[in-house]
Nucleic acid binder design. Structure first.
Length: 115
DNA sequence: TTTCTGACA
DNA sequence: TGTCAGAA
């Protein structure tokens, strides 16, 4: 199986997949909660990971968290991703299994499709 | 037709 | 957040 994770969705599809309105999706982006890429025409294109991230945001929102808390949560998450991505870090020094329930870094990176 | 930005209720 | 306008 080749690379089966290059799908990009327009905001309309994301609305259906997440249950959020385009208004909310764009607003969350302005708050730094998601970073979709843009087409030449300026339209937003979301990856599967952006969709999953938006679903998590929606769940947290429904759980009573304000956007500020959610934003902080995401920033901490991104920060941890950087840590485990640093080639200078020895796997033995990072208790990956205690941070995320994945068997290895490749799986995690694929799940989050980060550089 | 769909999406974009800005703006107003 | 919803929704309208005007443009792409």
């Amino acid at each position: 199986m080749t690379s089966a994770e290059k799908d990009l969705y327009p905001i309309g599809t994301v609305e259906k997949k997440t249950g959020l309105s385009a208004r909310q999706i764009r607003y969350y982006e302005s708050m730094g909660l998601v970073n979709p890429v843009r087409t030449n025409g300026g339209q937003r294109r979301y990856t599967e990971n952006d969709v999953l991230r938006l679903i998590r945001i929606k769940q947290m929102r429904d759980s009573g968290f304000d956007l500020k808390s959610i934003k902080e949560k995401i920033q901490v998450f991104e920060q941890k991703l950087e840590e485990i991505s640093l080639p200078s870090v020895n796997p033995a020094q990072v208790k990956l299994s205690s941070l995320y329930p994945v068997s290895n870094r490749a799986v995690l990176m694929k799940l989050l499709e980060k550089k």
